[in-house]
């Protein structure tokens, strides 16, 4: 029996319909990944248009990739005026199979304007062409470069966080695990917005949103199967692909985890926070009532979205020492 889903906040219904029509016009299935990717590319504004006349500088660079892998493209976004010394590595979403780094630049532009943050958006290889940990390794290469070039960018290397939504949240969590395990750059925090972290897709919430809402159970299945192929569900799945698989969540940077109460990722994300706390780690968890996947971006004027944006900004200020 399909469990009864948590209803949506009525104020979010319109944005949800818009999301479904714009982003999920074509149900994401194994055979529609490429078609979805082409469609997704049409809804991402070019960086020139995103920046427009804003008082920002942006620059594309190519940096060394993971060992034995191609170079990685990044885009750096900085305020024209004073920088605050804080940095954000932005990792885009798209179910591990869609999108480009310019799907993550909106957040970086906002943070550069309001907080003088220097942002780096990282391009990573997509599944199914590049399965397993290819994406996470590319993102980690981006972090290593960012931390290594912090001084040149006007960033304090102790004030860099990693941030992403959906698959970008999963990859952000993976980068935080890698940085810990490899004794790499010391992250000041990990901002995980409705993160996609568990390939097993077997929680109550994953069944509540089966065929309904944004990024439903079936889309989630498609993304994970593309990323993990036949290894999905097995013990061979790396925590760097599916951070929920990590058995040790101690000694991670402070985590900010936010998710809607009306989405597939709710239970796995609550569980991740709970397990971080159980180890004595720092985390902040917000589960927004009646909210769908991506609500704060697609229904920005709703009261709940404004509250979500304000809470996130508060954590960023606390974590990065901003005013």
């Amino acid at each position: 029996m399909t469990p009864v889903p948590v209803p949506y906040d009525p104020e979010l219904e319109e944005g949800l319909a818009f999301f479904l029509d714009l982003v999920e016009r074509i149900p994401l299935r194994e055979h529609t990944i490429l078609e979805n990717r082409a469609h997704f590319a049409t809804i991402i504004q070019p960086i020139e248009e995103q920046v427009g006349d804003l008082p920002l500088d942006w620059e594309n660079r190519v940096i060394p990739g993971p060992a034995g892998a191609p170079d990685v493209e990044i885009t750096i976004i900085r305020p024209k005026g004073a920088v605050s010394g804080a940095g954000v590595l932005g990792i885009h979403g798209g179910g591990m199979v869609l999108g480009t780094r310019f799907f993550a630049t909106g957040e970086l532009i906002d943070l550069a304007l309001r907080h003088g943050v220097v942002g780096v958006a990282v391009e990573y290889r997509l599944a199914p062409e590049h399965p397993g940990t290819a994406a996470a390794e590319d993102c980690y290469a981006g972090l290593v470069w960012f931390a290594g070039h912090a001084a040149e960018l006007g960033v304090d290397p102790g004030r860099i966080i990693v941030s992403g939504a959906s698959a970008g949240g999963g990859l952000s969590a993976a980068v935080a695990l890698m940085a810990r395990d490899r004794k790499g750059p010391k992250l000041a925090g990990q901002l995980l917005n409705c993160p996609m972290i568990d390939d097993r897709n077997d929680t109550v919430s994953s069944y509540q949103y089966d065929g309904i809402g944004a990024w439903d159970r079936n889309n989630n299945d498609t993304g994970w199967s593309a990323l993990l192929g036949v290894t999905r569900f097995t013990d061979a799945v790396s925590a760097y692909s599916a951070p929920s698989r990590a058995t040790d969540l101690s000694n991670l940077p402070p985590a900010y985890i936010e998710v809607g109460s009306a989405e597939v990722f709710r239970d796995e994300d609550v569980d991740y926070a709970t397990r971080i706390w159980a180890t004595g780690g720092q985390a902040e968890l917000h589960v927004w009532s009646g909210a769908y996947h991506g609500f704060s971006g697609f229904s920005p004027d709703a009261v709940v979205s404004q509250a979500a944006n304000a809470a996130r900004d508060s954590w960023i200020r606390r974590t990065l020492g901003l005013r």
């Binding site: 948590v6 209803p7 900010y256 109460s261 609550v270 720092q282 009646g290």
Partner: peptide
């Protein structure tokens, strides 16, 4: 509450 299809909002504040 969520598993029962009910509405809840949860905030756990760091530190």
């Amino acid at each position: 509450i969520w598993a029962a299809g009910g509405q809840a909002e949860l905030h756990i504040w760091q530190g």
